[in-house]
């Protein structure tokens, strides 16, 4: 069983994703924003982070830079799962992958729950 930090600002979507991940056997800490997510990770180290980029106040990118600044969390895989199209980060693809440790960039509206679960499970499998 793996622990997943789910950073999703929309309450309805957060409930749905958390339910799907829990049904798949994971424990989930849903967080609506970047600051609360850092506090949550501090309380219980996640095995994986699922991150929306569009957050209130601090963006998902700001979260990633802060998250990666702590040595304990440098190797935790991150799946970006966002309404923001990946094409907007095309010029920063290397930074996202190599510096910020983004394993997958999934566009939320094109990713069904079963596809998200498949990416989560494959990422956790590689990690273990």
């Amino acid at each position: 069983m793996s622990h997943i930090l789910l950073i999703e600002p929309d309450r309805i979507l957060a409930e749905t994703y958390a339910q799907a991940l829990t049904n798949a056997g994971h424990t989930v800490s849903p967080c609506s924003g970047a600051q609360i997510a850092i506090m949550s990770a501090d309380q219980q180290k996640p095995d994986l982070v699922i991150l929306e980029i569009q957050l209130i106040e601090h963006s998902g990118i700001e979260f990633l830079y802060e998250f990666r600044s702590y040595s304990d969390w440098r190797d935790i895989p991150v799946i970006v799962h966002s309404f923001v199209p990946s094409s907007e980060f095309i010029s920063n693809k290397n930074i996202m992958q190599n510096q910020l440790g983004v394993i997958y960039y999934l566009e939320k509206h094109h990713t069904r729950l079963k596809d998200l679960l498949a990416k989560v499970n494959s990422t956790l499998l590689v990690k273990s």
């Binding site: 929309d10 979507l13 749905t16 799907a20 049904n23 309404f83 939320k108 509206h109 729950l113 079963k114």
Partner: peptide, 18 residues
Amino acid sequence: LKVPFLQIARKAEIGQIT
């Protein structure tokens, strides 16, 4: 509008699973 439509799509999907 993507937000409520995504909510509908994913709620329908999880409804089929559960």
